Amino acid sequence: MAARHKSGNVRLTADDWVQAGFEILADEGLTGLKLDQLCARLGVTKGSFYWHFEDVDGYRRAVVESWSQFRDEDRDQIDGMRDLPPRERLAQMMALLVRPRLYKLERAMREWARSDDSVASAVLSADRRILKATRQAFSDYGFDAAEAEKRATTAFAAGIGLLHMPLSELKSMYGPSLRKQLEPQRNWLLDFLLRP
């Protein structure tokens, strides 16, 4: 994460601070995203923070912008799937968007969006891009525009619902290898949504 000087001091980048914020958001939610906790996690003083950010509001804006760029990268990956058959494209999109590593962060960003208009705007923008690609896959499968819209919205809502289920509950339902266990569930949902 950070380059260490020979003296043992840590030279952090703005991205190191943002990544620490992502970790805290995923672990503790927005209430944990405080300067003292960031410094403790990174093992540095507040002076290091102020080297990169004017204030906590500026830092939080950087976290949201970085998350938006991260989601844009997801969108770029989805755009790269355009030539796949629609069912395979949808399966890969679903797997991409509910990666365990990002599960808690995605949920935390959506919670944050409930109380912050700029975060809500970033989440909405990301959602619109994903919905558009999902709609296109259903359309490519052969559904008319209205039907593709309904099915894409249903698939998207199911994914959001999954994000808001407690991870402990999902693991109790599907076992410790959650990712493997969810694959049959995802395939069932795709089969259901692709029925004529």
Rank of each mutant, 00 (worst) to 15 (best):
Glu169Lys: 06
Glu169Tyr: 09
Ser139Arg: 15
Ser66Arg: 15
Gln185Phe: 10
Gly32Asp: 03
Met93Asp: 03
Leu38Thr: 00
Ile160Met: 07
Asp127Phe: 11
Arg186Trp: 01
Ser177Lys: 11
His5Cys: 12
Ala126Gly: 14
Ala2Phe: 04
Tyr59Ser: 03
Glu147Ser: 15
Asp15Glu: 15
Ile160Thr: 14
Ala62Met: 08
Asp116His: 01
Ala122Gly: 09
Arg87Asn: 08
Ser68Asp: 01
Glu169Val: 07
Ala148Phe: 06
Phe192Gly: 03
Val44Gln: 08
Ser115Leu: 09
Val119Ala: 08
Glu73Lys: 15
Glu111Thr: 05
Thr134Lys: 11
Arg129Val: 12
Arg128Gly: 14
Thr134Gly: 15
Glu147His: 09
Met81Asn: 03
Arg186Gln: 05
Trp67Ser: 04
Gln92Gly: 00
Ala133His: 14
Ala133Trp: 10
Pro196Cys: 12
Arg129Met: 09
Asp76Phe: 01
Arg186Asn: 11
Arg135Thr: 08
Leu170Glu: 07
Lys46Asp: 06
Arg114Thr: 05
Leu33Gln: 02
Leu38Ile: 00
Ala145Met: 15
Pro176Ser: 14
Val56Met: 04
Tyr50Arg: 03
Asp36His: 15
Pro196Ser: 13
Arg99Ile: 00
Arg114Pro: 01
Ala108Glu: 02
Leu12Asp: 06
Tyr174Pro: 05
Arg151Asn: 09
Trp112Phe: 13
Met94Arg: 12
Arg107Trp: 02
Ile78Trp: 10
Gly8Phe: 04
Gly80Pro: 10
Ala155Arg: 04
Lys104Asn: 00
Arg110Phe: 00
Val44Ile: 15
Pro85Ser: 12
Asn187Gln: 14
Arg107His: 02
Pro184His: 07
Leu105Arg: 00
Asp57Phe: 04
Arg41Ile: 02
Lys46Ile: 04
Asp76Ala: 13
Gln19Phe: 02
Gln136Trp: 11
Arg151Trp: 10
Arg114Met: 05
Ala95Cys: 04
Ser66Gly: 07
Gly58Phe: 03
Gly47Arg: 03
Arg128Lys: 15
Pro166Asn: 11
Leu96Glu: 01
Ala152Lys: 14
Leu190Asn: 11
Leu189Asn: 03
Leu33Val: 02
Gly161Met: 06
Glu88Gly: 14
Asn9His: 13
Gln136Asp: 09
Ala145His: 06
His5Tyr: 13
Glu54Gln: 10
Gly29Asp: 01
Leu131Ala: 09
Ser118Arg: 09
Leu30Arg: 13
Asp116Tyr: 00
Leu30Gly: 05
His5Arg: 15
Asn9Ile: 06
Arg101Ser: 02
Leu30Asp: 13
Arg195Ala: 09
Gln181Thr: 10
Gln69Tyr: 05
Thr45Arg: 12
Asp36Asn: 11
Pro196Arg: 15
Glu111Gln: 05
Asp27Gly: 07
Ala146Arg: 14
Ala95Pro: 06
Leu189Ser: 05
Ala14Phe: 08
Leu38Asp: 01
Glu111Leu: 02
Glu54Leu: 08
Asp79Phe: 14
Gly21Glu: 03
Asp16Leu: 03
Glu73Ser: 12
Ser125Phe: 13
Gly21Ile: 00
His164Ser: 12
Ile78Pro: 07
Asp74Ala: 09
Glu149Pro: 12
Arg129Pro: 04
Gln136Tyr: 08
Lys180Ser: 15
Gly161Ser: 13
Gln19Tyr: 00
Arg151His: 11
Arg195Asp: 07
Cys39Leu: 09
